[in-house]
């Protein structure tokens, strides 16, 4: 444990100048790699047919192309808003609706076998986008809380050896480069992917509404664990362990739910958005 704490602090101090993207490239690749291990054979062959690459190859494509003026890329594919403070906004994929709206649209368009009568390049583009934003939802710094729940989320500055560090950037760079600088996807998956069968069944079920509650829980815990003004380089061990555990849970949720979404789409089924209302 001690070894991890030291290296973790050293790792944080060597943070390269990264723009505040979502999970940074390495994290996206490894989460997509983990998702790929749990794809059903049907989903795997279909993904290979459409993408002609692995999911981890296209995992951070949306970040690389987010600012191009082609029709396919929408600007804000990371943030999620909570208008009523309780549930995520499920309405539409526009910037206001945020990422969960994108997932609702994609499932409505591809689910129940409807993907078969779409042109293959459109389905291909949906898969590339999903491989990016489904894990993106679980990055703890991606939920914009309303004022009532968390008054000063924007001013939630952290420090690193005295220097200012963005709250968003800290959470983006947690996953992945612990310990050795050059982890490969297999090694990170080995460290993160220790999930019991029961937990997997629990993750890969429920409606999008339940998933939204998981996201909010993660985001709120991330604010409790690393409150405003903490200096990240000198965190005690328990705090570092809590950060690591939260980040691993986010990765597991992202990977298994991405695999679950693809498995259901290519098994001609669909995922309910809301729990069946009376």
């Amino acid at each position: 444990m001690k070894r991890f704490a030291i290296i973790f602090c050293a790792f944080v101090s060597v943070l390269g100048v990264q723009s505040a993207k979502a999970w940074h490239n390495f994290a996206h690749g490894s989460i997509a790699y983990m998702a790929e291990q749990h794809l059903s054979p049907e989903a795997k062959s279909k993904c290979n047919y459409y993408l002609r690459h692995t999911l981890s190859h296209y995992a951070s494509w949306m970040d690389a192309w987010r600012l191009e003026r082609f029709e396919v890329v929408n600007k804000s594919h990371a943030s999620m808003s909570m208008p009523d403070g309780i549930n995520l906004d499920f309405k539409s994929g526009d910037p206001a609706g945020g990422v969960m709206g994108h997932l609702v649209n994609a499932l409505a368009e591809l689910g129940d076998g409807k993907y078969k009568n779409l042109p293959d390049s459109v389905v291909r583009q949906r898969l590339i986008n999903m491989a990016h934003y489904v894990p993106d939802m679980y990055c703890p710094s991606h939920v914009l809380f309303p004022e009532s729940v968390h008054p000063s989320q924007k001013a939630h500055k952290l420090y690193e050896k005295g220097k200012k560090l963005g709250y968003h950037r800290f959470w983006d760079h947690c996953l992945g480069r612990e310990g050795r600088v050059k982890w490969e996807y297999e090694e990170l998956a080995a460290a993160v992917d220790k999930v019991s069968k029961k937990r997997v069944a629990e993750i890969q079920s429920g409606s999008l509404e339940d998933w939204g509650r998981d996201i909010i829980r993660l985001a709120q815990r991330s604010i409790e664990i690393v409150p405003m003004g903490t200096d990240v380089a000198y965190m005690p061990e328990e705090q570092v362990a809590a950060v690591r555990e939260l980040v691993y849970e986010a990765a597991v949720l992202g990977a298994y739910r991405l695999a679950y979404v693809l498995n259901t789409i290519f098994a001609d089924k669909n995922i309910p958005v809301y729990n069946d209302k009376k």
């Binding site: 002609r52 396919v72 649209n105 042109p119 390049s121 459109v122 291909r124």
Partner: peptide, 13 residues
């Protein structure tokens, strides 16, 4: 609903 059109493998106009 925003219809996302085709990019890398299919060619634009």
């Amino acid at each position: 609903m925003k219809k996302i059109s085709i990019l890398i493998f299919a060619l634009v106009a």
